[in-house]
Computed example of a mutant assay.
Amino acid sequence: MTVSVHITNLQQLEKVSLRERVSRALRAAIVSGELEPGEVYSAPALGAKFGVSATPVREAMLDLVRENLVTTVPNKGYRITTVGEADLDDITELRMLIEPPLAAKVTAEIPAEDMPKLRDLARAIVDGALAGDLVAYTDADHAFHLQLLAYVGNARVSALIADLRAHTRLYGLSSLDGSELEESAREHDLILDAIEANDPQEVERLMQAHISQTRGRWARPEGS
């Protein structure tokens, strides 16, 4: 009985691991533009592309649907999400209204003992940029911003920002060169410097600049 349960658990772990690997490969293909916005792709075709069956592709796509990276097209497959310039402007406006003032508000409340953890998150963003790993970069960036919002103690705010970021977190990244990506990554350390200095006005200013510049860097009109 023990052996049977152990084997079953191993099989489940292997299945989860394959799903995660396929999810990561699909995200990378979306970032690179290999999977084009607006196009519909079937699970069997994607499975053949990545050397797996259609089943782990369908399972991985459930994650990507929740992240707003793809939408389901009944009886056909999955359409890569297209985000328009007007949508990006609206999302950026909402983030500017919410994140900078709240980051300033909690500046004095962030415990000094939490700074090493925040520095690690900021370092992970830079590491992703230096490695050219756009998925690692966006995952770490997502974690950093939501961790700051966690100090507000408002779950609805965190959920709203997570949803807004899910619509844009991979948009336009493939157009950035390495130096631009690194520059954006290192802005998080400047925000932490201001937090450590207990300077809420500077935290708000830096967060506003970061979000504004992110809009300009990540979402350039095609041909620019």
Rank of each mutant, 00 (worst) to 15 (best):
R95A: 13
I98K: 01
L46G: 03
F50N: 08
Q201F: 07
A143T: 11
R27M: 08
Q12T: 09
G178K: 11
V3C: 04
P37Q: 03
P56N: 04
H142S: 07
K49R: 15
I161C: 08
N9S: 09
E183T: 11
S17M: 12
Q12C: 07
V70R: 01
D133T: 10
L176K: 06
E59N: 13
L46K: 03
R165F: 05
E113L: 11
E109F: 12
L64Q: 03
I80V: 15
R156D: 11
P101M: 09
F50W: 11
I30D: 01
T92F: 05
Q11S: 11
R119E: 15
E39K: 13
A86G: 08
H6S: 13
D193Y: 04
P101I: 09
D114M: 11
H210Y: 03
S175T: 13
A143D: 15
N75H: 14
R58W: 06
W218V: 08
A60S: 12
Q208L: 10
A150R: 13
A185H: 04
V40S: 02
V57E: 01
T92C: 13
A162Y: 00
R215D: 02
R169S: 07
Q12L: 14
L206T: 02
I125R: 01
P100Y: 06
L146S: 07
R119P: 00
L148V: 12
R123F: 04
V106D: 01
S184L: 13
